[in-house]
Design a protein around this nucleic acid. Structure first.
Lengths: 192, 192
DNA sequence: ACTACATCTTGACAAATGTCAAGATTTTTT
DNA sequence: AAAAAATCTTGACATTTGTCAAGATGTAGT
């Protein structure tokens, strides 16, 4: 299981076997059943989580019981509520497995230690954070500039893989419209 | 003018006079008239920009000529299109001064050099990036969970100062609704 | 194989929002 | 001070979207 993470890191860095050994020693392996959660709102999040296999979602549950999906995390992606982790405040969000998943957790302090100990790991993390900022900025851009139909098409373009793995109501939740509206947009588009 | 930046840094760090001297030597001072731009879409952005005085906006101009505001940057805030800077690709955005403003520009390479040379400056930048990620995540959260009225009230709570300095249609643009709808939301709220 | 549950679509209607236009008010420029 | 421009509100109407409900289809668990 660590092999997957190792391969991922190998693509982006040139770490030594010693580095890998250190990293592996700090990884907590977790196997998740479908629908199993790793974060519940109200709890403080303390890890960096890497998805080796499967698919998770981070979402907000509003007072009406409606789910608002902040992020999908498929294999080779990171997840976790950075806000809660950085502030030590209870999270607003839930994270759970949409599919049976294998994940690696690295405890906050261990992760910081790795960044300080392995310069190249630190560079890699900085790169990842930069990409994350770009992704977030891009999502804000689409949310204020695109129509619902455009948001859906954009989602398909951006995440074709995820689109084929999750039910439509989750896509609707991610782009911020109701499931019924999405259904109608799809049938409209099909007519053209 | 550098004094303002120095005071800002002094609040968040404990840098030496030598550090400040190095930083100052790399700062490009720019005075902006109202409506003057510092970034036009199509250009590549290459700086980190700190606002000493005034107020800027970063926005996207769609095909219909409509403005979609991604960010307001008042004094003591940073602005710039990080995506363009990190990728060296042309920016989608424009940045210009809403009020007469004084800003400091630090060239991308110089900024990286400062991070490598002054560890405490680097820590401070990392903190700033973390906060930025939190802000972006928060904005996505509000954009998919709140109604238009709630988005407006949230804006007032989050940015009371900016709310009193910009015209309503810019707030509408920022939260992603039309100026007319915002006007109606306000008159509705006033009745209560 | 059967049952229970989730998913997806569709209809009907209400509510929210956008668009276009006009006019009042305020601010800025000359 | 006068003219020009920007801001804000409001009306009328079309369009989009949400909500509730029903039913069809597909999927998962026992």
């Amino acid at each position: 299981m660590f092999e997957i993470f190792r391969k991922y890191l190998g693509d982006k860095t040139t770490l030594s076997n010693q580095d890998y050994a250190l990293i592996e020693s700090l990884c907590i392996i977790k196997k998740l059943r479908k629908n199993q959660y790793i974060l519940q709102s109200g709890d403080v999040w303390k890890y960096d989580a890497f998805v080796c296999r499967g698919l998770l979602k981070m979402y907000y549950l509003d007072v009406k019981g409606q789910e608002h999906i902040m992020q999908f995390a498929p294999e080779n992606y990171w997840t976790g509520d950075r806000e809660s982790m950085d502030t030590d405040l209870p999270s607003k969000y839930n994270i759970d497995a949409i599919e049976p998943s294998d994940i690696l957790l690295i405890e906050k302090n261990d992760f910081e230690m790795l960044r300080k100990t392995i310069p190249e790991f630190n560079n890699f993390v900085n790169q990842t954070i930069k990409k994350n900022v770009q992704t977030l900025q891009g999502r804000i851009h689409t949310s204020i500039t695109l129509s619902s139909e455009e948001k859906y098409n954009n989602f398909l373009k951006q995440f074709p893989d995820i689109a084929s793995r999750v039910p439509l109501h989750m896509i609707a939740s991610y782009i911020g419209i109701s499931a019924e509206t999405l259904s109608r947009i799809r049938s409209q588009s099909a007519k053209k």
